[in-house]
Design a protein around this nucleic acid. Structure first.
Lengths: 334, 334
DNA sequence: ACTTGACGTGCAACCGGTTGCACGTCACAC
DNA sequence: GTGTGACGTGCAACCGGTTGCACGTCAAGT
């Protein structure tokens, strides 16, 4: 039998109260509502608390207030470089509001997202779901119990921050057209990803408008290896340029092309998305920027505001994107 | 004034008890110690609970048991590709033990690590500190209040999982020597990083043993740009090969060399460390493997065991490393 | 038939905070 | 001098679980 874990610090509000010769209520108020007390009392209590090394027991606090002081962030894959910057900004914004952040990695699975949500739900004040794969119904259900903010997912009635890549995508298509490309490929991401749906339709639309053909190649889980193995399909498609779902896939494609001695951008043009790794590849990749860090801050802001006001605000913020031209796109070969 | 947040689900143990016509104690036991009850009672209670949508209030549970069911993981930088795999494995191991994971990103700062630890401490059962920058004293202090497991940090008396890169480093030096290199450079990481200290001394020792010269170049925070800007110092050092603190730095160096038209590996040989990005660069990088995922599992295992047994186990596990030769190392020029 | 003990369940205290309400004090107005 | 209200603090209930102990029941042992 495990020994009963010692609490935060052995000292409770009662100890402080006794030492300071006041009631427990006064100690509590000295921290939570000091304006109700005489300033000298507050100082005295705080000094005594400090001396004793008092730290409030979070569980007790949560139990009586009903607030946990925690939020949960769920991402499909922390290892995807799109997410870490977002995780960091969410965290720093949360910290300002004195909220601690649980992180859940759903491994690209809706089922695991649901599990994580269920696990976190009883001890958080709210959720940030980044690129969630859950069905709208399940998101509504969750939002019915706890404030939820989505990133990169557009569900009616739920506050959300959307990185609108259609702008950048369209620019990208135009860019390729100017370079003389007529037939391009889109290396598509997970079908249940909103980002993919958005990018897919943006590129299709833009290509149609520009009078270009576009072949969609399904890649599935966006990973380096998936990108690399998509190259054969890419070659078979007879396109002269490709746009990948994200930079990770794109980087894989770049490596795959190199393996087949297809020179980029001489023989083939390649465009990524998210601009997470683009600057780091050789040659540096043309990509659609996506300020994931900014999206994280915005999402956290939204959630914090909801928690503070107690109101839901079904806002729909969008973050614009644009094309960053680097060295992987060039004139169409032939 | 925010409305009082609705608890996990309106329904409490009392509601279930009333509906099932048993006492609250019985409901509690049906979940936590079912072996004390008649099986039929357990089934009945669970069925009623299910029907009512009962979820235990974590705060109340934590308050009476003194266990939170949470652990905290603190990393210096989630965006560094070394950490995400570790985060994932820690999380999946924690999940098996029904523990939720707080993630803290310390932004490479000891001060922020301390802040995060203080913030998490009152609501977690234990800590995993990955590559912590905190002083040994502060780690001891923390470990005095809560079980702590370290990764990549060797502090006496604290259970720890060490990725022993000296093995791989030594292999690397030998490899370079065979290729004819006599003067090499080490692009050092943060001085307060244990990994850096270990790698620094391993390379110095191995080089001395091989009769090679080694110039240490301080890079500071390990990042792509830091690596890139270190190239001038690297060139000035007159070395024919370099070993970087990690793959991120190494990737930056690779780009910097390319910018100066220094061909790798023809004119210069480069070795990374951690093998996180090495396979992804062009040319693919020679690097010292570091199974960060395995380290994460081991660390989580250790912590879970400590929590379950209630005993501290000052174990010191090491994970071996080896050299993975790829395409960035070749015969010394000239 | 009576003791004994194992078993299943309930009672009530407890974990450590928070908060509505009541009480005492004191300054001020009348 | 008494009434009035603001102010500062304490009392005690409450949040929702857990758990030591006690009680009642029933089967086995003598």
């Amino acid at each position: 039998m495990p020994t009963r874990p010692r609490p935060s610090s052995g000292v409770t509000i009662g100890d402080v109260a006794a030492a300071a010769d006041v009631s427990r209520a006064t100690v509590s108020r000295a921290f939570s509502r000091p304006e109700l007390l005489r300033p000298e009392t507050v100082d005295h209590v705080k000094a005594v608390a400090e001396r004793l090394g008092y730290t409030a027991n979070r569980a007790a606090q949560a139990l009586s207030t009903g607030r946990f002081g925690n939020i949960a962030m769920v991402v499909p894959d922390v290892a995807n470089p799109f997410f870490p910057p977002m995780v960091r900004t969410v965290q720093s914004r949360a910290e300002q509001a004195d909220l601690a952040v649980f992180l859940g990695d759903a491994d690209e699975s809706a089922e695991r997202e649901a599990k994580l949500a269920a696990r976190f739900s009883p001890q958080v004040d709210g959720f940030i779901l980044a690129s969630p794969r859950l069905s709208a119904e399940r998101i509504w259900e969750l939002a019915d119990k706890r404030p939820v903010v989505l990133v990169n997912r557009d569900v009616e009635g739920i506050p959300r921050v959307l990185i609108d890549s259609s702008g950048g995508m369209t620019e990208g298509v135009v860019h390729l057209k100017r370079l003389g490309h007529r037939r391009i490929a889109y290396l598509a991401g997970p079908r249940d990803s909103w980002s993919d749906q958005q990018r897919r339709s943006a590129i299709t639309r833009a290509a149609a408008a520009a009078g270009m053909e576009v072949e969609v190649i399904e890649v599935g889980r966006p990973s380096y290896t998936a990108g690399r193995s998509a190259v054969s399909a890419l070659v078979a498609a007879g396109a002269t340029a490709a746009v990948a779902f994200d930079d990770v896939v794109s980087q894989g494609v770049l490596a795959g092309l190199e393996l087949r001695d297809i020179a980029v951008p001489r023989d083939f043009s390649l465009m990524g998305c998210d601009d997470t790794l683009a600057a780091l590849t050789t040659p540096a990749m043309t990509s659609v920027s996506a300020a994931s860090a900014a999206a994280g801050t915005a999402a956290a802001d939204l959630l914090v505001r909801m928690l503070e006001t107690g109101r839901a605000e079904p806002e729909r913020l969008t973050v614009a994107t644009h094309l960053v031209v680097r060295a992987t796109t060039g004139p169409a070969a032939g």
